[in-house]
Design a protein around this nucleic acid. Structure first.
Lengths: 105, 105
DNA sequence: TTCATAAGCAACCTCCAAGTTGCATTATAT
DNA sequence: ATATAATGCAACTTGGAGGTTGCTTATGAA
């Protein structure tokens, strides 16, 4: 289940903070990210790799730097997944409800 | 960040499977869940506790059994969070685009 | 009443993830 | 040309997560 990887990547406070900052701010380098969060560059790098593996983020090297940028597609995927869950759940509830109404007759 | 807990809970293949089954099927007991997934009851119980802590699932004891049921609210919360991320990101991109157009003049 | 079934509690094992430090490498600015 | 800044790679430590087994408790059915 690929979507589990996306949720897993988002399920860490540090990475979620990264994603939030990236959603508002401009694309920035790995060092910038690590400075903002107050953790080691290597630590930040690992987190960013997790996000990249889940396609939540893309990293393009440019000269000496590596620029990190948000990628909408997996966010979309996660959103769609949740909506589908909710759809099924609602469907079940309404089915249950109409069943009860039938029994009242 | 409470939403991180929700994502974390969803970020495990076993738990995601649980949630999917619960979204389609009827509320069922802990033993039923563990049987469906082929893991120990105690193993399943731990996973369900994680889901319950994230308010993705509610567990109500009834006599000898404990019935597990999906709870829409945190799913909603997660969905809203992602939408907000996407909104901000899109906003940034359009702002960037109009900036470029201005420079062309 | 007796037996089987659903669950709780606790201890335990194993492995991975988060984070660090240290060193090597490459590119930029002076 | 040289120093500095950004990164990569590797090894290491540690806490917690996923999963199990064993035993006890309580409820429902025969």
């Amino acid at each position: 289940m690929a979507v589990a990887e996306i949720f897993r990547a988002l399920g860490d406070p540090v990475r979620l903070e990264m994603v939030q900052r990236l959603s508002s701010g401009a694309p920035c380098t790995i060092s910038t990210v690590s400075n903002q969060l107050g953790i080691t560059r290597q630590g930040a790098r690992k987190h960013l790799q997790v996000l990249a593996d889940a396609s939540i983020v893309t990293m393009r090297p440019k000269g000496r730097d590596v620029f990190v940028e948000l990628d909408r597609s997996s966010l979309d995927q996660a959103e769609q997944f949740i909506r589908e869950l909710e759809r099924r759940w609602d469907q079940r509830l309404t089915a249950l409800k109409s069943l009860l109404e039938d029994n009242e007759r």
